[in-house]
């Protein structure tokens, strides 16, 4: 990479790193150090082909997602995830507090999903992408996205009994019969 390329790369990182780090933190289940590693590796890949990338942010995001999936597939040693301590079960002093408490419980449960499950949920519910787009990004079938979403939500309920009272998501109402393995293009 020449000096000009390095300059534009630095500008991109300075301008977009906060947004990208947020995604990386979510993908890492709240582990900030793992998120920085994830983002660093994605940016290294982007730097290697900087002059050939038209949409750097889209490229880096795609690498972030796929890296997560690949890490899972390759059975890389899973990092111990430290999460904020769950609040003691206390009195319900209002709807706001109860909702905040539920969000924290959910955050803890999300951190305990597999990387693949969490990635699919981040794409579906944080990025608000349709199943077809998630499938394209992850290089798998729509059926796989649907079944993974379904199983991930079920797993969340299993991990946190506090979530049992919640209504089913759309994805849970029509369970997919597609249990094909995740296919990730290299």
């Amino acid at each position: 990479m020449d000096a000009q390329g390095q300059e534009s790369f630095r500008e991109f990182v300075a301008g977009r790193s906060s947004a990208l780090l947020k995604t990386a933190v979510l993908l890492s289940g709240g582990d900030r150090h793992a998120a920085e590693d994830l983002l660093q590796n994605a940016l290294i890949k982007a730097a290697g082909r900087w002059h050939r990338i038209d949409e750097p942010e889209a490229y880096v995001r795609q690498v972030l997602y796929r890296q997560q999936i690949s890490r899972w597939r390759l059975k890389w040693r899973r990092r111990e995830v430290s999460v904020a301590e769950l609040p003691e079960e206390g009195t319900d002093d209002g709807d706001g507090a109860a909702a905040a408490e539920l969000r924290l419980v959910m955050r803890g449960a999300l951190a305990r999903l597999t990387a693949r499950q969490r990635t699919v949920l981040v794409l579906r519910y944080f990025e608000d992408l349709p199943e077809a787009d998630v499938a394209r990004i992850l290089g798998c079938s729509v059926g796989t996205v649907r079944s993974t979403t379904h199983r991930s939500l079920a797993r969340l309920r299993a991990l946190a009994p506090e979530l049992a009272a919640l209504g089913p998501a759309d994805a849970e109402r029509e369970p997919s019969r597609d249990y094909s393995p995740v296919e990730v293009r290299p």
């Binding site: 947020k22 979510l26 939500l153 979530l163 209504g167 759309d170």
Partner: peptide, 15 residues
């Protein structure tokens, strides 16, 4: 509240 709405809220709060 549905579970997917809570997932969305929790992720957005975290980010």
């Amino acid at each position: 509240m549905n579970v997917d709405e809570l997932v969305r809220d929790a992720l957005r709060e975290q980010a």
